[in-house]
Design a protein around this nucleic acid. Structure first.
Lengths: 238, 238
DNA sequence: TTTAAAATTATTGTATACAATTTAAATCAT
DNA sequence: ATGATTTAAATTGTATACAATAATTTTAAA
């Protein structure tokens, strides 16, 4: 069945470390990007990543392709993979998309939410508060973004949830590249105010607040084409 | 630098056929699915596809991963790739997502469209008409779906355009799986009526018509869990 | 004959080999 | 020295090798 040629170094079937799967690698890198450990423009060398994750280039490649389709990584043919550097135009489009998508999702949530859903959401805000008071910047930022995804999830539409999640991830890259002058505490305040309107099931007010919130974040950015930032790998992926 | 072992059959650098790139493969398979040549549930064997496209499994694999992230293909670990079979729930969610997303996009289009944009859209409908009168079912269906994507593109937001395009592609899979009883001519009529409202820049009416259109398509489906359909490869990818 | 078990064959998952580029370094001319 | 050319090293793109798993067929038992 197979044309036998010459024997080489044997493939090692059982490994010492865990058999890290592709999804884990994608998540790990995505997290590092969201946590601003890997700045926009950073080179993502395949061999280097393979070494870090104890896996061959094959899997790294898969991960990089997936990240590319998530728009977190840019793949330049023959040159390699880099952490994406969304343009000003793309940044504006992502924010517009969020206004469009999240207003619909929020409406659906308010119309459908059970008392339990409301409690879940309030609880999430409490977590955000705790992380802001006494957590790392990384978890705080993650939770602040995750809030929007959670609303989508509780609205009960997985398709919309995936869309929101992708937009939120892209936003975190954007806010790093165009240093937002707006602090995390302002966002948290927005979330509190928004939650109050949601709980009263005041759709009109809630939509107004959501749009205002997204606008404020966008306006807090310095949306000018910047000189690319660069940095190294090994330190970022602890 | 490299540990030389034994020589094997040489890699053929220059090929006889065109050096088909991954994107072309993705498009080709996606088209075949949209054209209903590859029914939901059909097995997508790697070796077989490689033979068809004259390329190794490596590239086929990449293409299948991409199609999986587009939700047109389902990847079962250890078992292989299959044309996706969206569940009833997923189908409903895709339609809800389209109502949410496309109303926002349509509003933006009407507010921003230049006279030229209007003409472009009208021209697209004329194409749809021609394809319905005297074209293949494949191009007709493609154009009927593409109409929605074109509105997004003309609205000027690439992020939203990508989202709409993905939802439209998934819809074509859904309409096959849950045989829609509604004919193409009805959709075309809807498009004509919608265009009239768009041209008058009557946002309220246009939104009403768009939602009604999407609802009618959804209601034309038999949304019951069906027994899987299956079929072969070679014939589908002419 | 029908079912269960074993052996066989085919397919997927992952690593590696090698060609083609691209990047970096070294050499040479101005 | 500075800039252009050549040479060398590293990196990416693609195919292939082999291991592991799943599907299939064959054989054996009931």
């Amino acid at each position: 069945m197979r044309t036998a040629t010459a024997q080489r170094k044997p493939h090692r079937a059982s490994r010492d470390a865990a058999p890290t799967d592709t999804h884990a690698i994608v998540t790990h890198i995505a997290r590092a990007i969201a946590a601003h450990k890997l700045p926009p423009g950073a080179k993502l060398g395949e061999e280097a990543l393979g070494e870090i994750f104890g896996v061959s280039r094959t899997k790294i490649r898969q991960a990089l392709f997936q990240l590319t389709s998530d728009k977190l990584v840019t793949l330049i043919p023959g040159r390699g993979a880099f952490v994406a550097q969304p343009t000003v135009r793309e940044a504006r489009e992502v924010f517009e998309a969020r206004r469009m998508v999240e207003t619909s999702v929020l409406t659906a949530f308010i119309e459908r939410a059970s008392t339990k859903d409301m409690a879940t959401l309030k609880n999430h805000i409490a977590e955000q508060q705790r992380a802001t008071d006494a957590g790392t910047a990384q978890t705080r930022n993650h939770l602040l973004g995750d809030f929007h995804t959670v609303i989508a999830r509780l609205a009960g539409n997985d398709v919309m949830t995936a869309i929101v999640a992708e937009l939120v991830a892209r936003t975190s890259l954007i806010t790093l590249l165009y240093q937002n002058t707006r602090g995390a505490s302002e966002s948290l305040t927005d979330h509190h105010t928004l939650m109050a309107a949601i709980e009263k099931r005041d759709v009109k007010l809630a939509l107004q607040l959501m749009v205002a919130h997204l606008n404020d974040v966008e306006n807090g950015l310095v949306l000018k084409e910047e000189a690319p930032v660069v940095a190294d790998l090994k330190s970022a992926l602890g």
